[in-house]
Nucleic acid binder design. Sequence first.
DNA 1: CGTAAGTTTGAAACTAATCAACTGTTGTGG
DNA 2: CCACAACAGTTGATTAGTTTCAAACTTACG
Lengths: 241, 241
Amino acid sequence: MSAAAPAPFVDPCTECASRPISICRAVPHDGLQRLADRLTVKCFAAGEPIVLDGDASAHVFNITAGSVKVFRSLPDGRRAVTGFLFRGDFLGLAQSERALFGAEALEPTTACRFPRKAFRNLLLEMPQLETELLERASHELEQAQDQLLLLSRKTALERLSSFLLGLSRRAQERQEPADPLRFPMIRADMADYLGLTTETVSRCFGRLKTSGVIRLLAGNQASILRPDRLAQLAEGEHAAA
Amino acid sequence: MSAAAPAPFVDPCTECASRPISICRAVPHDGLQRLADRLTVKCFAAGEPIVLDGDASAHVFNITAGSVKVFRSLPDGRRAVTGFLFRGDFLGLAQSERALFGAEALEPTTACRFPRKAFRNLLLEMPQLETELLERASHELEQAQDQLLLLSRKTALERLSSFLLGLSRRAQERQEPADPLRFPMIRADMADYLGLTTETVSRCFGRLKTSGVIRLLAGNQASILRPDRLAQLAEGEHAAA
DNA sequence: CGTAAGTTTGAAACTAATCAACTGTTGTGG
DNA sequence: CCACAACAGTTGATTAGTTTCAAACTTACG
């Protein structure tokens, strides 16, 4: 972008807008080139698979734009979405030799792709990166436990409320607008994430609308009119006004 | 144990029977003393709390004997058991400043307790330990995702079958007998782990018994008579004989 | 032994799933 | 540019699996 000379090797990391919220924020400036050397920038169309369920897990990814759903399936086709990933999120923490899950872009998505082995070597070379990854794994584990509680014990309405609240929180963490809340996933994905059916998700949206807690807008957007009430609903405190 | 001299400082780690399956297996011999310096061996009675829900999470633990349940609660008392820990397991991976969960001994239990800060320093000093921890976090994340699928989409019978199979696998990993399978948790704990009620768990045990897949023995033990059938049930392949 | 805790079993009630129809939206090719 | 097809979302009626409530039974243990 600068008006400088031919610029032989401007690595793609130094000026990356996603770096402050990605794993690479832990990598000091003089290590960025080593990262850049090993990554491929990949673009995925909406609906395109990123990781194929059951495939050898040869790569890990850092999502720089767009959004992704990660899912796990039973032999008869029943499916659970185990997580949604956004800009700044890392894909590949839970991988063993063979991927036990699939991942798919929800909208046009960009990611830095690393060969798994090369990434492993990077970790050994850069302890700060490993520490960052452990921190993220720790955080994801906490999130997963929240989700276990949600799936074990919450009602349909509590689940949807928790979900919307979580989406909103994560949008804010990424410094994206939280009021016209955008959700790139369809009802079926939400249902698979919340352990419900599309019909039940739809009915709960209806209840949240008529009770004036949220308002659905065009283009997969929503406005949270009463965040306080939504938070109460999410934790099962139904008594309060 | 050796008939040697007064032996001034025999650290408790060198001859620890749990080391081959604990995080400390990643620590080289000459680092064990540093570990030993920072830990306290703690014993817990059956039912005794190890981590109090909501308390400042000041410690992390390595379980060396016994078993532990980890749980998370809603304000109105609904509860999910997010995991069971056994000999060799690490407690504290998912901790932030304040523990969002409780942990309680299921039977007489022994653990090495580290102050959280001291442990953090150990990690920085010993990259092998950090790598080991990341590997475990990765593995736990996978397990958690399995559990998400279980809670989202499996029937009561499939859940109990998966649970028993998992217990059996983990017992074998610890090199403990898998045939008379021992389970230290009561029905209520299983129910909270599987997102069911004690009554439903009991009814499913009944079905597994009458169909000849398992046999319940005295003293919280069971025999898995048809592991193949149990595995089919766990994955929803009900058709086969 | 006797009590309390845990487990099993039965009947009724309820939440969410299933089945079904209809509406709205998106994208495409005639 | 509109008609159509495919997909997505909503709404209603019915069903089913699990929960809830209740009581009897079993086991562990002081």
